[in-house]
Amino acid sequence: MVQVLAVLLAIAYLIPVYMTVVTSLKAPGEINFMTAWELPSVPNWESYSIAFKQFAPHLKNSFILAIAATLISAAMGSLNGYVLCKYPIPGANIIMPLIVFGMFIPYQSILVPLFQFMQKTKLYGGLPGLILVHVVYGLPITTLLFRSFYEEIPDELLGAASIDGANFFGIFRYLIMPLSGPPFLVVCIWQFTQIWNEFLFAVTLARPDAQPITVALANLAGGQAVSWNLPMAGSILAALPTVLIYVLLGRYFVRGLLAGALKG
């Protein structure tokens, strides 16, 4: 009974994938509302090559953006988490919620000053600027996650190390970092998917040559899309990296979700 129900629900959850793949493989002339569910008579791979050609520069942008911003924000978050967790900073009780609040704000409420600031600092339009923005707005969640992980490291261990003469960086390098592998992966997966999937900053802060993949997809789907095969092929290409990460590293992905929600 339970098994059957699970299978049925799984089919329901996979229906959109089926529709997307089927539609993306049809020739434009074959796409028809009434036969939307049928398999293509002959698979037409052309949509993928067209979509890929249009997407290639944007995919590159997305990779550079997501990887750089993920690594930088994770590195900063891990140092911040370490400091906030193990060093008595005056006012830390207030600092932490103030930092975390930054991850919940609707970006519409800072959008106009943000692009004015980017213009004034000449960071507007290119990838470096977008990376900066994603690093800054990624700091709350990375700091929070690392702080939660480091709380599990007993203070006695640190005390012992510092008696042995290790300084701030020594403890971080030889005690904290070796323990940070899994959390680092969790944070990176979380940040990578978030940044890869982001749309509002991408559409307002990037010049066309620096636009990431989500904007390219919105252009393809909402612009001059005549038939549905192209947007569907585009959706698959845009989704592939994060879905792959998720399927391969799903365990950590789930841990990231949980840490974000449960530890607050």
């Binding site: 629900l9 799984a10 959850y13 996979l14 959109p16 998917t193 890869w196 999937n197 982001e198 749309f199 989500t214 997809l217 919105a218 789907a221 959706s235 845009a238 989704a239 994060t242 879905v243 990460i245 998720y246 399927v247 799903g250 992905f253 789930v254 979700l257």
Partner: peptide, 12 residues
């Protein structure tokens, strides 16, 4: 299967 939609962009 139930979790994979989570990894997609809202635009997708």
């Amino acid at each position: 299967v139930f979790l994979y939609p989570m990894s997609l962009s809202l635009v997708v």
